[in-house]
Write a protein that binds this DNA or RNA. Structure first.
Lengths: 217, 217
DNA sequence: CTCACGATGTATCGAAGCGATACATCGGGC
DNA sequence: GCCCGATGTATCGCTTCGATACATCGTGAG
């Protein structure tokens, strides 16, 4: 799971561990509170031995032109993805693992949807929908049949879980519909806006979501 | 995390592993898809060595003329909670761990709210609310400030995470209000629900959640 | 009657990830 | 001068997971 996320971030730019962790937290922060070094560093080690990423020190190249990044002379290790790593990333991103509804792997896939194609996106969205639907129906069953065998708090927990699942299914259906019509998610399709000052859709600075997926073979 | 859940279920009745797992799944199914044997059995072992639970075979208690060697027939192992286990359960239940927003520990606590007192419930609910609020505000920050540095899919993921957090906060506030007014949660009326006069200042552990006969020594 | 099959049931293994911790450098404020 | 918080790399012990193995029981198809 971290493999995919790390590779995905390193595609955008080489990075060292600390920065990697910060970006992972903002990128995956919606469903993942923290990424521990205890998992990040072993993952980096693993990726290195597999050949997906390489270690490169900036000190050798840094002579005088150091710009914004605080370059210290200490042993900061900068990781960069390799060609094999990019290929592996594509494979990982395309395959929708048979996850359970509480598996964070879906979120990681979704966070990198801009780097895959519409067909894969649809496949993963529909797979996710199926799993969440199953979960929801299981809860419906419990709520209908075992209502008298559970105490009020347990019941309320199930009810809340059911509603959350139901909401996610509806969210997924919106996304699937948008995807099928060839659009990208965002303010145009979303009726419950979040931010107060709405600005025009501004993209092009980073990688656009719909137009060029950079790594597709 | 599993410790608390296993102890809580064993308070209601002695059980063997398979049954335990099934009940865990229905009780915690709202936020936890599956409980693996790979975590359940080590947990049981751990609880045994600590003395919180004991192993009791119904076969040996029945007749047991000969020494039952487990070569031919594999015995079903029934686990039962001890007095110390009940005490430990009360301690675990009362303490609200400093969890992150995606920590399933809150769900376990909530599922056993019927076995604790109003004060503890309020403390845990408010602690949870604080954490989810922090998470929500973090996401709001990202959405407001980094909207142009993230692609449309990542943004949509954050937006969905924000809404889920916001909804949970509102859910928690409802529960807190209900709790403060002395009620029990839920739109559905539960017949075997929480004892309405649980105003007793202590004896929280001894408060039965349902029709379970009182097993407290 | 048999026997295959699914449900019940106990158990372990390797790997992933986490929380805590240790340690080192840097820039700035008191 | 000197501490403190941010940056930065790294490991340890532990919990949990998914996969797997293996054994028993009831039942129904052939």
């Amino acid at each position: 799971m971290l493999e995919l996320a790390v590779l995905g971030l390193l595609i955008e730019a080489p990075m060292h561990g600390y920065e990697l962790r910060k970006q992972l937290i903002t990128k995956l922060g919606a469903f993942r509170a923290a990424i521990s070094y205890g998992s990040l560093y072993p993952t980096l080690r693993r990726l290195q031995t597999k050949g997906w990423i390489t270690e490169a020190s900036p000190d050798s190249a840094a002579s005088a032109a150091d710009i914004p990044v605080m370059t210290s002379r200490r042993g900061r290790v900068v990781y960069a993805i390799t060609a094999e790593g990019k290929e592996h990333f594509g494979d990982l991103l395309a395959q929708a693992g048979p996850e359970t509804f509480d598996d964070p792997a879906f979120g990681v896939h979704f966070a990198f949807f801009a780097r895959t194609d519409q067909q894969t996106r649809l496949r993963i969205l529909e797979g996710r929908r199926r799993k969440v639907e199953e979960h929801r129906e299981g809860l419906r069953e419990v709520l209908a049949r075992a209502a008298e065998r559970l105490d009020a708090y347990t019941l309320e927990l199930q009810r809340h879980g059911f509603e959350a699942a139901d909401r996610e299914v509806r969210w997924l259906e919106e996304l699937i519909a948008t995807e099928r019509s060839g659009g990208t998610p965002g303010r145009a399709q979303v009726h419950h806006g979040v931010d107060p000052d709405d600005r025009g859709p501004d993209r092009g600075k980073a990688n656009p979501a719909s137009e060029t997926p950079e790594r597709l073979e």
